[in-house]
Nucleic acid binder design. Structure first.
Lengths: 208, 208
DNA sequence: CGACGTTATGAACGCATGTTCATGAACACA
DNA sequence: TGTGTTCATGAACATGCGTTCATAACGTCG
């Protein structure tokens, strides 16, 4: 039927189709180095297959990249676990969880998308891709509104600006991490006490 | 001495050196389309000169790009005017000015840098380039600390988280603008009332 | 066991890019 | 006017990319 030499190279199992194998390999490379200088040959070499295989399973390089990015996004979301329910725990603790969640999400996603930001025409082809931080932002908005409806926040609490700020903090932290990484590859992420300070300030901002 | 055919093409004046002319041209192209797909030939064509001229004045393409980016950053900063002094006006009004300033700055700068974010090794060559939003951020920190020292803010006001949020709001606004632009080229920037809401929330966050 | 269809192979292709260099045009000076 | 120097010119080069396709290796079926 299908895989021959390549299947043998990939190990005895071989229950994974070559198509899936390519997606997994591209996903790994994207996670490591982003989409920027990622070549067809690099993917093929990493997958242990010939240069042209890609075109037996995808229309072009971008279609493979789209599938790989989707897989990457799903993997990240799966690894981040559940977000708090409204009414449970303290709002402060829950916001801290949301912020940590958002920071992890952005740290995992933004580098992969950085190469696409520069090319709007390419980015447009990925528009149907679930935009992970839009999801996260919507859930944060829903969460705060629900807390407001439960009476645990003042009725006039400015939910939208608070969310805008928390999303912004995530972007800012990861962008500055990217910039610092260009000089020092081992730059550290945002320390915990700064996260706490932001949560405290946001809580004051929405009237606690 | 120097310019011949090209000088004539550029107009009668010709007091501008070809080197400066190349920088200005590249700066214009960067402002319009970013550094992403910018080729040596595109710059040469836009400047009305031969393909290879660049190498009579710069070591390589990246050196020209560095000069052009520097020029672009300076031009933007020049166009944005002065920031408020501590002690003058209201803190609310001043923060609004800072935020508008930061939004303009990021809208003008971030698209040009988007292509570089994806390539850390290239970005590292531009490390000496004044990082415009670092400057802006430092000035905002200094401003709020000065207001605190003047007694117009509580001594324990959390300045750093507030600044982190405002910088983040700028990043977030421009990044989401870039993303929306990839689908709708005429997407609108952040409306004024959202800016006001953010400023109000930040003010509450630092204890007003 | 042999014919057939499927599909991985990887060399080759076309193209775009950054860069080089032999050429000659424009100027300064004698 | 003649000579030397400077430097713009743009065709040519080297490289790397995405993509194609004739070939051959493999599994299936009669």
């Amino acid at each position: 039927m299908a895989p021959r030499r390549a299947a043998a190279l990939r190990g005895g199992g071989g229950e994974q189709s070559l198509r899936a194998h390519l997606i997994v390999t591209a996903e790994r490379l994207i996670a490591e180095r982003g989409t920027a200088g990622l070549t067809v040959r690099a993917i093929a070499r990493a997958a242990g297959v010939a240069d042209g295989v890609l075109y037996n399973h995808f229309a072009d390089k971008e279609e493979l990249l789209a599938h790989a990015l989707r897989a990457r996004v799903r993997a990240v979301e799966r690894g981040l676990g559940e977000l708090p329910e409204p009414g449970s725990g303290t709002i402060e603790g829950n916001l801290r969880t949301y912020l940590a969640h958002g920071l992890d999400l952005h740290r995992a996603i933004l580098p992969a998308f950085a190469g696409l930001l520069a090319q709007p025409e390419v980015l447009a082809r990925f528009a149907d891709l679930t935009r992970p931080d839009d999801d996260w932002r919507d859930r944060l908005i829903d969460y705060l509104r629900a807390e407001r409806d439960l009476g645990r926040l003042a009725p006039q609490a400015p939910v939208e600006p608070a969310v805008r700020m928390m999303v912004g903090v995530c972007h800012e932290a990861i962008l500055s991490l990217l910039l610092r990484r260009s000089e020092d590859p081992d730059a550290a992420p945002v320390p915990q006490d700064e996260i706490d300070a932001v949560v405290t300030a946001v809580l004051r901002g929405i009237g606690r």
